[in-house]
Design a binder for these strands. Structure first.
Length: 565
RNA sequence: GCGCUCGUAGCUUAAUGGAUAAAGCAUUCGCUUGCGGAGCGAAAGAUUGCGAGUUCGAGUCUCGCCGAGCGCACCA
């Protein structure tokens, strides 16, 4: 990757000036404005203050330091021009043929790009996490969208990624739904949609009965029977749990996610409780008011209940069983739990408890929080009445696309709808809450998934009309539109790397939008197929590279790139 | 009450402590005998909630204030 080479060369240059600095302190940034070149470094500004040795001449100004450095850097093979600018930045202008080489390395690689395969960890990415007997709402949609792209980014930089999903299928919420089923009058539902609708109604009724209907004890009894695997309850439980799982599979398949391993709370409840009791014997947990708790307050954290006073493991207790199981099955270097932000303090507590109970997990557990999805009405909640489901949203997007483009086939409409919704989440920075506006999500203009898909399809369409060689051999006299596009494409690898290591898919989204804008500007101004040689070969190369980068980038975001739309 | 997160154009959002705070939507004005107009160009739109501080340099870091959201024991 070019950026790495530049860092190395700056490091050598500055070492030669006898400045004590480590290589990772060298910052090389992509510039925002073409007049500042392709890359810039602020090293002269950083170094000038206190790291330069005192010389007989006294303090150098940053500009003087930068000037000295450019003298040693100007002969680097990729450098077309160097400039010292502003308070002391060094701006690098890269030779077009070097960018061409960078772009060709992308074109020649498959989904994993060799030069950015810098990691080789075994990573579990855990996401989706719907609870059975409840609906998959649009918060889950942001979750699965985020988890899938994180998994793909981490794979792209060389890790071995296992996609896992941890689903709540025991606990009070299930008891509420089962109470509802038993008290609603059971008309046997036929279709999957009817089954899910029935479960939703049952949960709503059960929740209301629990909160204000005086049925608290009855529902807690059902909960007890679930944990104790009471035969009669198990029958209902298994059947309705199966409905939920079938319903979830339908969604996973729509959004292009395939899990390698489904974990369930029912699977880890017993072992979790056992682990907590073992910890209690070892003094890690303590008894308090009939419950078994972890005294997080000793570490500035919350004190939390791991086994409740009825003797059932809470969410906390079950997570002990989950961690033990995950480490025994995969021995991961890292487990990423993609979970909503309000659980940040919760995770701090269980990770701390796990340091003592399961020392092998130390430093290997990560809570990746993504922001809330809000509607104009406020926070979505399946505890209250109004639930916006993931499927409703995808269907709505699909209908609007079909309304606007009557010729579009069903498959493509589906791909565009899923892309539109996913992109509207991913273009935002991960931790930020976002306000979701359905009309804006399906608006196909501007910074949107369909805009990127459209640009890709447009490139493919142009390329399909040409059967010649698309490797240019002359990059002289590049026009500004060509240069801007080529340079942008050349940054792909470093953007993917940055996105992966910082868990920031929005870097990829914003990059792709920039590429698409530059391509469309280029396309609008300059003929491709009607151009004469050598312009035609050059422009076809740029078109092919744009199509490839958009396709690979969209793949990393978990978005399909149809060839026609 | 204690803690965490957040406050950027009318709206939704970008911006590893860097150069003139960047886009999209909406608004206004332009571009089609054209390789896909779901496109392109342009205009207008900001005291980055308020006030101090650190720094060569602050939307970003520190402190205070105002406002919003979330979390603080038997839910998940």
């Amino acid at each position: 990757m070019l950026r790495d080479q530049i860092k190395k060369d700056i490091f050598s240059a500055i070492k030669a000036k006898k400045v004590d600095i480590s290589e990772d302190q060298i910052e090389v940034a992509r510039t925002a404005d073409p007049k500042f070149g392709d890359f810039s470094t602020n090293i002269a500004l950083k170094v000038n203050r206190d790291q330069l040795p005192e010389t007989s001449k006294g303090k150098q100004s940053p500009q003087e330091t930068a000037k000295l450095l450019t003298d040693s850097l100007k002969d680097c093979a990729y450098v077309e021009k160097l400039e010292v600018a502003g308070p002391g930045f060094i701006n690098f202008f890269i030779k077009p043929e070097v960018w061409q080489t960078e772009v060709e390395s992308v074109l020649n690689s498959s989904s994993v790009i060799a030069s950015i395969a810098k990691q080789s960890q075994t990573i579990l990415v855990e996401y989706a996490h719907p609870n059975t007997h409840k609906l998959f709402h649009i918060g889950h949609l942001r979750n699965i969208t985020t988890g899938e792209t994180i998994a793909r980014l981490l794979e792209a930089v060389g890790n071995k990624v296992t996609r896992v999903n941890y689903q709540g299928d025991v606990g009070l919420h299930i008891a509420k739904a089962i109470w509802g089923l038993q008290n609603l009058g059971t008309k046997e539902p036929k279709t999957l949609d009817q089954k899910i609708e029935l479960l939703a109604q049952a949960y709503k009724a059960g929740n209301q009965a629990y909160e204000e209907g005086g049925q608290k004890e009855a529902i807690e009894l059902i909960n007890k029977k679930i944990y104790e695997k009471d035969a009669e309850i198990m029958k209902v439980w298994e059947q309705t749990r199966g409905w939920s799982l079938e319903y979830f599979d339908r969604i996973y398949s729509r959004v292009g996610t395939k899990f390698d391993r489904l974990y369930f709370e029912s699977e880890v409840a017993d072992s979790g409780k056992k682990e907590v009791l073992r910890g209690q014997n070892e003094g890690i947990f303590e008894k308090s008011e009939g419950a078994v708790v972890f005294a997080g307050d000793k570490y500035g954290l919350h004190k939390r209940v791991f086994i409740n006073s009825l003797g059932f493991p809470t969410y906390e207790g079950k997570d002990m069983g989950l961690a033990k199981l995950q480490f025994s099955e995969y021995s991961p270097d890292l487990i990423i739990h993609t979970v909503a932000p309000e659980q940040t303090d919760y995770f701090k507590v269980i990770f701390k408890a796990m340091e003592f109970l399961l020392p092998q997990t130390k430093g290997k557990e990560l809570h990746l929080a993504y922001g809330w999805v809000r509607l104009k009405e406020g926070k979505m909640s399946s505890r209250k009445g109004e639930v916006i489901t993931g499927e409703w949203l995808l269907d709505e997007a699909k209908n609007k696309i079909k309304e606007q483009f009557v010729d579009v086939g069903d498959d493509v409409a589906e791909q565009v709808a899923v892309g539109a919704v996913k992109y509207s989440f991913l273009k935002m920075s991960l931790g930020q809450d976002l306000v979701f506006d359905i009309n804006e999500a399906v608006n196909l203009n501007g910074n949107s998934g369909p805009y990127l898909q459209y640009t890709h399809a447009r490139c493919v369409s142009v390329l399909a009309k040409n059967h010649g060689i698309v490797k240019p051999n002359n990059l002289d006299s590049m026009l500004p539109e060509e240069n801007a596009l080529l340079g942008a494409l050349g940054h792909f690898e470093e953007v993917v790397l940055d996105a992966a290591v910082s868990y920031s898919p929005n870097l990829v989204a914003n990059f792709l939008f920039d590429v698409a804008q530059k391509f469309n500007g280029f396309y609008n101004k300059l003929p491709i197929l009607k151009a004469a040689e050598p312009e035609q070969a050059k422009r076809l190369f740029l078109t092919r590279a744009t199509a490839d980068v958009l396709k690979k980038g969209l793949y990393l975001l978990g978005i399909f790139a149809p060839e026609k739309m």
